[in-house]
Amino acid sequence: MSVAVTGATGFVGRFFVEEALAAGERVTVLTRQPPPPGFFSDPVSHSPYALGDRPDLSGYDAVVHCAFAHVPGRYRGGEGDDPEGFVRANLDGSLALFEAARAAGVGHVLLLSSRAVYGAYPPGTPLSEEMALRPDTLYGEVKALAEDALFAMASPSLVPVSLRATGVYGPAGPGQRHKWADLFDAFRAGRSIAPRRGTELHGQDLATAARLIREVPAETCAGRAFNLSDFLLDYRALLAFVARAEGISHPLPPESDTPVSVMRTRAISALGWRPGGRALLEATLPHLL
């Protein structure tokens, strides 16, 4: 199969590229600039792309859309002081890509969405795909509207799917920092860390889910959203690993008692998806230090 990935050199996008390469697929990265030499484990093709473009997607079996314009380091609140530009780039830009995929006869279009589409539900609410979407940020609203627009394009030849991912962790690409790098540095420096816990998912497991979706019969996933989440992680437990590994004696933050809305993942599990759980976290953490 041949796969095109937008935002492929971003932290999350890289996992989709590496999964496709491992499966022996032909990969084209759609980014503004070509990736640096050696950024991916195997050679990839490059096609210049920016949000709002209508690239020629002829000949591709699947498109994975990860590109997203936002204030660096922020998704919620990522519009900064330009909400109109945020919507124009991300929603209108996504629609242009979807239209290009449909015109080119692409079989699968997968949108990287977010648990932010459920934002307004009270903390501690179990979240399932059947629930009405209630985004409470512009980021979540844009993702929800992009999902709706993509699903409306479903046809016998086009299989649109949304990947509603929770927080993604894992090794970053060459020259990049992983999601907890600043947290680890703050802990090493002895700064106070506020209690926090949240749901996590390894980027490898996210990309595996995307591959499974593309391999099952189209009627099982066309026009559907899939929740993707693995486990609940507290900063105290995470930093305890860092403390043990590096001999740090700074006080750990207290455990968080904040309720967390956990996404149910029965739909993707029914396709045979099994995330790596805490065993994968423990295997990954040494690489993040």
Rank of each mutant, 00 (worst) to 15 (best):
M1L: 08
V5W: 10
T9W: 06
G10C: 02
G10D: 02
G13Q: 04
R14N: 08
F15R: 05
F16S: 04
E18Y: 07
E18F: 04
A22P: 02
A23G: 03
R26G: 14
R26E: 15
V29D: 05
V29W: 04
P35N: 02
P35T: 08
P36Q: 15
F40N: 11
S41P: 00
D42K: 15
S45H: 13
S45M: 05
S47L: 13
Y49Q: 03
R54G: 08
P55C: 12
D56Y: 12
L57M: 07
Y60H: 13
V63R: 04
A69M: 07
H70V: 08
G77W: 07
G78I: 00
E79S: 06
P83A: 01
R88C: 01
N90P: 02
L95P: 01
A100W: 04
R102F: 01
V106Q: 10
H108L: 02
S114K: 00
A116R: 00
A116N: 07
E130R: 13
M131W: 12
A132N: 06
A132I: 09
R134L: 13
T137P: 02
L138V: 09
L138K: 05
Y139D: 01
Y139E: 02
E141D: 10
F151E: 06
A154L: 08
S155C: 09
V161I: 15
L163W: 01
R164C: 07
A165C: 12
G167Q: 10
A172S: 14
G173K: 05
A181V: 03
A181Y: 07
F184T: 01
G190R: 05
R191K: 12
P195M: 14
T199Y: 09
Q204Y: 10
D205Q: 10
L206I: 06
A207V: 09
A207S: 13
A209N: 03
R211V: 05
L212C: 03
E215S: 14
V216I: 09
A222E: 03
F226K: 02
L228S: 09
L228Q: 12
D230V: 06
D234K: 12
A240R: 14
F241N: 02
E246A: 11
S249G: 09
D257F: 11
T258W: 02
V260A: 01
V260M: 01
V260G: 02
S261L: 09
V262N: 05
M263A: 15
R264I: 07
R264K: 10
T265I: 13
R266T: 14
G276S: 12
G276Q: 10
R278C: 04
L285P: 00
P286Q: 07
H287N: 11
L288V: 09
L289F: 14
